[in-house]
Simulated scan of single mutants.
Amino acid sequence: MQTESEVRSLAPATQGIGHTVRLTGWIAFWVQLGLAVVSGIALLVAATGRGFADQANPGLGVGIFWAVCAVLVLLFGVYWDYRYTRIGKSLENLNPALHPSKADTTKAIRLAIIVSLVGILLAILGAGATVAVLVAKSISQPPGVAITDPNKIIRALDVFVMLGNITAITGNFLGTITSIWLLEQVHKH
């Protein structure tokens, strides 16, 4: 059992890393939540707008699918950021019995890194499918001639799918960077 003086000597270091984890968790939470909302709205506009178009573009459906998967992973990352705030709060507690172990904290951060990397991969797949459709549409348009086939026109809804994918990549990337930084901070203490 630790003496009171040993607990006091450990408290500032543990409270310092606890504050860092909690503050970083809140910052990442709000930034990633904002990016998830922007991506979700862009995909919602793209998906609902496709229903109003005369000719649906089946190639963009794949891009929307992967983007939605990436946004769901991003929302899990938002939840994990909130979990960081709880881990930080428990580390700030003066009672060392309530502190999560360094191994548990490291394990949680590593899981967040893996999840964010999966989110990046999913969003890249969606962005790749969307770019392929946009490139195919752009090169199928003859230069200087009026376009008679409406399927060959790049519509704003097509670009919204790309916006959703890029925003999901950004959000998951920020989650990865945040978790890597936190992992480094935890290993220092």
Rank of each mutant, 00 (worst) to 15 (best):
E4L: 14
E6Q: 15
V7H: 03
R8G: 01
Q15Y: 10
G16Q: 08
V21G: 00
R22L: 10
G25W: 09
W26Y: 09
V31C: 03
Q32D: 10
Q32H: 04
L35R: 06
L35V: 05
L35G: 11
L35H: 07
A36P: 08
V37M: 03
V45L: 10
G49L: 02
G49N: 03
R50S: 15
G51K: 13
F52M: 13
A53H: 15
A53D: 09
D54W: 15
A56D: 04
N57H: 14
N57C: 04
G59Y: 04
G59H: 07
G59D: 09
W66N: 07
W66E: 02
A67D: 12
A70W: 09
A70V: 15
V71F: 12
G77I: 01
Y79D: 03
Y79Q: 12
W80M: 14
W80V: 09
D81N: 15
D81A: 15
Y82T: 04
S90M: 15
L91P: 03
L94K: 14
P96L: 13
A97Q: 13
L98H: 13
L98N: 12
H99W: 13
P100V: 00
S101L: 10
K102T: 00
A103H: 08
D104S: 07
T106L: 02
K107N: 01
A108V: 06
A108E: 07
L111G: 00
V115Q: 10
V115C: 11
S116N: 13
V118Y: 04
G119K: 08
I120E: 02
I120W: 12
L122W: 11
A123V: 10
A123L: 03
A123S: 11
I124S: 04
L125G: 00
A127L: 07
T130H: 11
A132D: 09
A136W: 01
S138H: 09
S138P: 02
I139M: 12
S140F: 01
S140E: 09
P142R: 14
P142M: 11
P142F: 10
P143H: 12
G144Y: 08
V145T: 07
D149H: 06
D149F: 08
P150A: 11
P150K: 05
I153F: 05
I153W: 04
V159P: 00
L163V: 03
G164P: 14
N165W: 14
N165I: 06
I166S: 04
I169R: 00
T170F: 13
F173A: 15
L174S: 03
L174K: 12
G175S: 11
T176F: 14
T178W: 05
S179V: 02
S179H: 05
S179T: 05
I180K: 07
W181T: 10
W181M: 12
L182Y: 02
L183G: 14
E184G: 06
E184D: 13
Q185Y: 03
Q185M: 07
K188F: 01
K188L: 07
K188Y: 02
